[in-house]
Amino acid sequence: MRLEVTGDVREAVEGRPVVVTGLSIGLTDTWLDPSWLDPEALVLPLDYASSVGPDLARTAVLVADHVPQFEAVRTGPAWGDYPAASAWTGDLLDAPRPRGRVVCQNLGNGLSDLVVAAAVVDAAEGQGAGHLLDTGSA
């Protein structure tokens, strides 16, 4: 992987096959212009709708890691008139890549669960609390 630094957002995303964004969540006036992105780009916003606004989302196959939760947050004021997700992110794993641009609005549910679980285990081990269970083999 090669990393380049630029102060020009358009230069950073234009013609790139994969675009990962990571702004603070809730920023305004920071949406990417859909014309800057490759028509076949995979767009992975880590910042929800701070970078990928409704206009860009409507130009793509829009998926989410947890569709019901995505539906609950996409109607918030920061999201504008954001379209509904057309599928779960996991649906794309066993299927051919859809044609055109793909936006994966992953809310981080699974990752959050792992982070919290690791913190609980670390705290329990640090305090000598809890019991290790042998779950056996299935």
Rank of each mutant, 00 (worst) to 15 (best):
P45V: 09
T75F: 06
D65Q: 02
P98E: 12
D55S: 06
A60Q: 05
V63S: 04
L46P: 12
A78D: 13
R97K: 14
T75S: 11
L32W: 02
A95F: 08
P77E: 09
C104S: 03
L92F: 04
R58I: 05
C104G: 08
P96H: 02
P68T: 10
A85Q: 07
G76P: 08
S86I: 11
D47H: 15
E71M: 09
L62T: 01
V73T: 09
S50C: 08
G90Q: 12
A64Q: 05
R99S: 06
L93F: 14
D81K: 08
V102H: 00
P83Q: 06
G76D: 12
G80Y: 00
D38W: 04
R97W: 13
G76T: 14
H66M: 13
L93M: 12
T59G: 03
G80Q: 02
D91F: 02
V67P: 04
A87Y: 09
T75N: 05
T89N: 06
A84G: 09
E40S: 05
L93C: 13
V103A: 01
E71I: 14
G90D: 12
D47I: 15
R58E: 14
P83H: 08
P34K: 02
D65L: 05
V63Y: 00
S86T: 12
L62I: 01
G53D: 14
G53I: 08
D65W: 03
V43K: 01
D33L: 09
P98I: 14
D81V: 10
T89K: 07
R74F: 00
L56C: 02
L56N: 07
P34L: 03
P77D: 11
G76A: 14
A64Y: 04
S50I: 14
L37S: 06
S86H: 11
A57Q: 04
R99H: 13
D33R: 07
P45R: 00
E40A: 06
A60E: 03
W79P: 05
V67D: 11
D33N: 07
V67M: 08
P96C: 11
L56E: 04
L37D: 03
V103W: 01
A84Y: 12
P98N: 12
A64V: 09
R58G: 02
D65C: 04
A95S: 15
A95C: 13
A95M: 11
Q69D: 14
G80S: 02
D55H: 07
G100L: 01
A87S: 08
P54E: 15
S35I: 06
V61G: 02
H66D: 13
E40T: 15
R99E: 11
T75I: 13
F70P: 06
A95G: 07
P83K: 08
V52R: 01
D38M: 07
D91Y: 01
V63P: 03
D55I: 00
L46K: 14
S86A: 10
T59R: 00
L44D: 00
P83G: 09
L93D: 11
L92V: 03
G80M: 00
P96N: 06
R97Y: 09
T75A: 08
D91C: 00
E71D: 15
R97T: 09
T75D: 07
S50G: 12
E71N: 15
Y48V: 15
P39I: 10
P83N: 06
V102A: 01
F70I: 13
V63M: 05
P54Y: 03
A60W: 00
W88H: 13
P34T: 04
A57K: 00
G53C: 06
W88D: 13
A78W: 14
A87G: 04
L93S: 13
